[in-house]
């Protein structure tokens, strides 16, 4: 369970990224965070695994007070939370499996870290993760030979191999075309349902958010302005979240050819 209580986040340049956030996300939820760029979606997500520090308030994730831990505790805490990025963040010059194996690096004994030799058990886990996202046959191919959608699945497999309780995704489909976006979103949905993993993603495409997520959180100027089930989101709600720019955002997406 993730619980934000009166959380504020102020950047060193005095920009108030988050103000008075109160939020409770139960295990197994599929949550989409929507809002204009710069509204604080990304900051909200990155506070959860302490990629960003919070300034005030308290944030409890599965019993851990995220604001209070430090050093090694942070690293151990992060192992339980997977994260997916817009730009995939893979090592493109090596094979797919080596990228997935990176998720085991923190638990390796010293000699394995030096030599880069992974145990059979880890290899099996990595391959299983690749199988779960349907690209087992690409295991020994170099990442730079894969398409964008396949690369995002490698990133997903890397996160699954970590066996996390929570999966965070920061604009996971922003650099993908509509068809591969759908495949990746289906992967998220399956993971959420089959493995009962909490999925929190921030997303630019409203339609996609409404189709896949159970719960929508609307962020505007660092504050939560909507929090409720996806089927209750109306035109007015969207209009408010997007400061009356909902039409524009939609149009922009039509131009990009998003139809999922």
């Amino acid at each position: 369970m993730i619980e934000f209580t009166n959380v504020d986040k102020v950047y060193p340049n005095k920009v108030k990224a988050l103000q008075n956030i109160n939020l409770k996300i139960e295990k197994g939820e599929f949550v989409a965070v929507i809002g204009l760029s710069g509204a604080g979606k990304s900051t909200l997500i990155r506070c959860i695994n302490r990629m960003h520090d919070i300034t005030h308030g308290s944030l409890i994730v599965d019993g851990t007070d995220v604001g209070k831990i430090k050093g090694k505790e942070i690293r151990n805490f992060r192992k339980r939370i997977g994260m997916i990025f817009q730009s995939f963040n893979l090592i493109t010059r090596t094979t797919v499996i080596k990228n997935v194996l990176v998720s085991f690096v923190p638990q390796l004994p010293f000699w394995r870290k030096m030599t880069g030799l992974f145990s059979k058990r880890h290899k099996l886990k990595a391959l299983t993760a690749l199988d779960q996202v349907g690209i087992l046959d690409k295991a020994y191919v170099r990442v730079d030979q894969l398409s964008g959608g396949q690369q995002q699945r490698v990133a997903l497999a890397r996160t699954l191999a970590q066996n996390p309780d929570i999966l965070l995704a920061d604009e996971p489909i922003a650099s993908l075309d509509p068809v591969t976006s759908k495949q990746v979103m289906d992967d998220f949905q399956r993971i959420n349902q089959d493995m009962d993993m909490t999925v929190i993603l921030n997303i630019h495409h409203v339609e996609v958010a409404l189709e896949y997520a159970d719960r929508i959180i609307g962020v505007r100027e660092g504050q939560i302005v909507y929090d409720g089930p996806a089927h209750d989101v109306t035109e007015e709600v969207l209009d408010y979240i997007y400061k009356g720019k909902a039409e524009e955002v939609k149009q922009e997406m039509d131009e990009e050819g998003v139809y999922v």
Binding site: K120, K123, L124, L127, T128, D131, L136, A139, Y140
Partner: peptide, 14 residues
């Protein structure tokens, strides 16, 4: 030859 728990196999080049 690596055999996954679910029975699928993968060939790992040396």
């Amino acid at each position: 030859k690596i055999v996954l728990p679910n029975g699928k196999t993968v060939l790992e080049k040396r």
